[in-house]
Amino acid sequence: MSLELQARAEALGQTLPPLLAEAEMLAATVMLGEHGRRRAGLGDEFWQYRPAHQGDSARMIDWRRSARSDAHFVREREWQAAQSVTLWVDPSRSMQFSSAKNAPKSDRARLIALALAVLLLRGGERVGLAGLALPRSGRSQIVRLAARLAGEVDAAEYGAPLAEGMVSHGRAVFVSDFLGDLAGVETALARASDRGVRGALLQVLDPAEEEFPFDGRTIFESVGGTLRHETQKAGELRDRYLARLAERKDRLTTLARAVGWHYSTHHTGSPAQSALLWLYQALERGR
């Protein structure tokens, strides 16, 4: 084993247990009750009664329930087919940015994604990582996903979502700061739409990226070092920066809505629970 590979293996061994433990603790704080897919379909669990529609066969009608009213009712069961969910977490250099006492965006993104995987896998779904791990079920998949997430680092300045591994008519989640070229996001969403995949975009930003608390002489430099800008009056850039950020958020919202996806922003200075719950509910709404 080379020294570089050994160092990476040791670093992964130190990172994996805390990440997995923290993700499981985060998942435990989101009380979802018994997992339910809340769709009519094949299954054993009763879901609801609904009025009979034209085209329903006589075998579908629940005659005992119908006898208590003047209308006919159908007894629906809840859909219990496992769903495949593919996650993509931006591994690029820009995600390593952090300000003040906040954790790097990459840490928060991986934590939320893994906690979501824990919830979905416990609910019987299959979960995978785009380009890294095919959707599977079971406890072993949680460990596999944690190892992949903890060890993935990209040299690129900004990331673009991967569409690899998405299962037709499944679900997908893209977690990123989405500060790079949005053409990659548009391409991935188009490919997802072609496969009938619905999902959610979660934009993870540092509070400094949201508020632009800079003034006076400031040197702005990207994490990867490929971009650099020095100004004597950073405060004069605030309004233009915030306007550009608002335009980017509007563009992401438009792209998501065009293909039936959901979009939201999360700040690393805020609790992770709200983002996790939003993602879980967004996947449920997309069914």
Score class of each variant (00 low, 15 high):
residue 1 M to D: 08
residue 9 A to E: 06
residue 9 A to L: 10
residue 12 L to Y: 01
residue 14 Q to N: 06
residue 24 E to R: 15
residue 26 L to V: 05
residue 29 T to H: 00
residue 34 E to H: 13
residue 37 R to P: 09
residue 40 A to P: 06
residue 41 G to M: 03
residue 44 D to C: 00
residue 45 E to P: 13
residue 47 W to M: 14
residue 51 P to S: 00
residue 51 P to H: 00
residue 56 D to K: 00
residue 65 R to H: 12
residue 70 D to M: 03
residue 71 A to H: 15
residue 72 H to A: 15
residue 74 V to D: 05
residue 75 R to K: 08
residue 76 E to F: 09
residue 78 E to R: 09
residue 81 A to F: 08
residue 81 A to I: 08
residue 83 Q to E: 07
residue 84 S to H: 07
residue 86 T to F: 11
residue 90 D to R: 03
residue 91 P to E: 03
residue 92 S to W: 05
residue 97 F to I: 04
residue 100 A to R: 08
residue 100 A to G: 06
residue 100 A to L: 02
residue 108 R to Y: 08
residue 108 R to E: 01
residue 112 I to G: 05
residue 113 A to H: 10
residue 113 A to E: 06
residue 126 R to A: 11
residue 126 R to M: 12
residue 129 L to W: 05
residue 143 V to W: 14
residue 145 L to I: 03
residue 146 A to K: 11
residue 150 A to R: 06
residue 151 G to H: 00
residue 156 A to S: 15
residue 160 A to T: 12
residue 162 L to S: 15
residue 166 M to V: 08
residue 170 G to Q: 04
residue 172 A to V: 03
residue 175 V to F: 01
residue 176 S to Y: 01
residue 182 L to Y: 05
residue 185 V to T: 15
residue 187 T to P: 09
residue 190 A to T: 12
residue 191 R to K: 14
residue 198 R to W: 03
residue 199 G to I: 07
residue 204 V to N: 04
residue 208 A to G: 01
residue 210 E to G: 06
residue 213 P to N: 03
residue 215 D to W: 07
residue 215 D to H: 09
residue 219 I to M: 00
residue 221 E to D: 04
residue 224 G to S: 01
residue 228 R to N: 02
residue 238 R to A: 12
residue 241 Y to T: 06
residue 242 L to K: 13
residue 250 D to S: 08
residue 250 D to E: 13
residue 252 L to V: 05
residue 255 L to M: 01
residue 255 L to V: 10
residue 258 A to D: 03
residue 266 H to T: 10
residue 270 S to D: 15
residue 272 A to C: 13
residue 274 S to H: 06
